[in-house]
């Protein structure tokens, strides 16, 4: 079984671009076990029609959290709900909203792991924080490793 990787974000809103950069990095590396890599600049709601029930999915997005910029967080969506502020993110609905909507509709994929990279700047035209840029390669490596062995359900 292969894994589908989605990178979410907005290329012009500072650290919000990190998901797109990680997806690009993963796509270039073409690691074993990944069948497709897609950048989603628009609504995360689109994910509901891009993944299917039998897919193994990894999603990468920027994260607002009380932590150091560049910190990488891993969430297993089947193990716990994704708790986010309503409408958070520069997308029309947040990734958390989209995932929880999918859960309510019974449309989560077989496995769904979310990697969040903590960002600090999300305003239009701002440059990315250096620490967030530095997190692109290690996040891509973790995504590739995830695909190689399969998502570790319940892992921290």
């Amino acid at each position: 079984m292969t894994t589908v990787v989605f990178g979410l974000g907005h290329p012009d809103r500072g650290d919000d671009a990190v998901g797109l950069l990680v997806a690009d990095r993963v796509a270039r590396a073409r690691p074993h076990g990944i069948s497709a890599v897609r950048a989603v600049e628009g609504s995360p709601l689109r994910l509901l029609s891009l993944w299917s029930a039998d897919d193994r999915v990894v999603v990468v997005d920027a994260l607002r959290a009380d932590a150091q910029p560049g910190a990488i967080r891993r969430f297993d969506a089947h193990a716990q709900p994704l708790a986010g502020r309503p409408g958070g993110g520069s997308h029309d609905t947040s990734l958390c909203d989209a995932v929880e909507l999918a859960r309510a509709l019974g449309r989560l994929p077989r496995t769904l792991v979310v990697y969040g990279v903590v960002g600090a700047r999300f305003e239009v035209g701002e440059p990315m924080t250096p620490a967030v840029l530095d997190a692109v390669v290690p996040t891509a490596e973790r995504v590739a490793a995830e695909a190689a062995v399969g998502p570790r359900v319940g892992a921290p």
Partner: peptide
């Protein structure tokens, strides 16, 4: 939220 609404009105959402 729409998420709560979806639990009760799945077909509508």
């Amino acid at each position: 939220s729409a998420i709560e609404m979806a639990r009760d009105h799945r077909a509508v959402v």
